[in-house]
Write a protein that binds this DNA or RNA. Structure first.
Lengths: 152, 152
DNA sequence: GCGTTTTAAGAATCTTTTATCTGAATTTTG
DNA sequence: CAAAATTCAGATAAAAGATTCTTAAAACGC
């Protein structure tokens, strides 16, 4: 998989928060319910967002999480970096440590072109863009479609 | 990581075999030695290549593995498919089961463009291409540079 | 046939990722 | 001040992936 499952959950949650964020803080149990993710697991994952300054959290009644910045100032790149790190955007396809223009691996020149496209995509696609396109995803999640292996 | 570690080892081994294959079968212990990979592990991984018809194997003295086809008829796509399957080339970035043009996820239209580039790359890059570009990789591996975390 | 070389196959171990649970700590509400 | 809502932190369990180990099977040379 391109990005980790934790990261997928985190991105979906961020889209959800961006779509609902007019009402102040969004409680994590609400997000977990609507997205069919374990509450405790999501709590842990979202802490990476608060630690990296993409979200802010508030305890107690009417607490929850909220975006720390406007949705159009948070990119997919920011989200992935906070959860999975930047390896995906910098790594050699074969994982060779010193691979670069000086000592390219056999796939180097072909791979960096694809990787560069992916990086640009991630830097240009904002949370706002994704939130406005998320209607269909939400409908499906709300209808009980869980992740993966649950097609049957 | 884009592709699994098993797949990375397998690709490196395939490049090695392609470069040496004039001498009939190449013993797996030789490949494992030169590439700093565990012999037993490599044995298991290369079985996926023989099972999928990309390589042929032969037991006993002067045995080993060899390409089943000319190196310019084996693509990177073939190699990845044999080890990791085709998920990488077909999957939605967020791993949503029904994601497609009918019900796109928020990243769908952006992601498929990158994914398509990657697929074309993998289908056009042949083992022959990689073997001719592999000199530097082999030098580094022969000098004892192991994979990952062994930089110090 | 016997010993050596080599792949084949599967079990066992270790590591990482994913997921759950429990007990706090914090803040608002009444 | 007490009760409820909510995040925070850490321990633990389950699952998946990576690696190693052990034994078998095949081929060859003598």
């Amino acid at each position: 998989m391109i990005i980790s499952k934790s990261c997928i959950y985190a991105i979906q949650a961020a889209i959800f928060v961006a779509a609902e964020s007019k009402q102040g803080y969004v409680p994590i149990n609400i997000i977990a319910d609507r997205l069919n993710i374990s509450f405790h697991f999501l709590t842990k994952v979202l802490q990476d967002f608060t630690h990296s300054g993409l979200m802010i959290s508030y305890r107690g009644p009417r607490g929850g999480v909220a975006l720390a910045k406007p949705a159009d100032e948070i990119t997919l790149h920011n989200l992935v970096e906070a959860i999975d790190g930047t390896d995906i955007f910098t790594e050699c396809m074969l994982g060779l440590p010193g691979c670069g223009t000086a000592e390219p691996c056999p796939t180097h020149e072909h791979w960096i072109e694809v990787r560069q496209r992916f990086t640009v995509l991630a830097q240009q696609l904002t949370l706002k863009d994704m939130a406005t396109k998320s209607s269909l995803m939400h409908v499906r999640l709300a209808n009980g479609v869980k992740h993966h292996n649950q097609l049957a």
